[in-house]
């Protein structure tokens, strides 16, 4: 089912992930979050932007364990734990943040 953003329509798969990565823009992430009653703060965007950078470089969405470690390195040890990430993204940091970032569901993600 497509998602409507600013009058434009974007294809998604059956789980709501954006079909075409290159079509992504921040407004799509906002719209997806709004549909799930999820506010996006700067802390959320730090994670979303990190995921996009990671995908750009390595062509994969990182597993949660990899994300946690990388966040700890980039944003400080106090944030490099699953508690912090699950507070931001209660549906699972991999699944939910990757969706807002326009990425496919991470490999090995439950």
């Amino acid at each position: 089912m497509p998602i409507e953003v600013n009058g434009k329509s974007f294809e998604t798969d059956e789980e709501g992930y954006l079909a075409n990565l290159s079509e992504w823009e921040p407004a799509i992430g906002e719209a997806m979050a709004a549909a799930e009653d999820q506010d996006l703060t700067d802390e959320h965007w730090d994670i979303i932007n990190f995921l996009r950078d990671y995908y750009e470089e390595y062509q994969i969405a990182p597993a949660v364990r990899v994300l946690t470690k990388a966040v700890g390195k980039r944003l400080g040890k106090d944030k490099g734990n699953s508690k912090y990430l699950y507070e931001l993204f209660p549906y699972g940091p991999g699944k939910q943040a990757c969706k807002y970032a326009g990425l496919p569901k991470p490999t090995g993600c439950v």
Partner: peptide, 14 residues
Amino acid sequence: QKNFSPVYAALGDY
């Protein structure tokens, strides 16, 4: 075909 060679560089993270 998808170029999957960049993925090898992520193995260290795993």
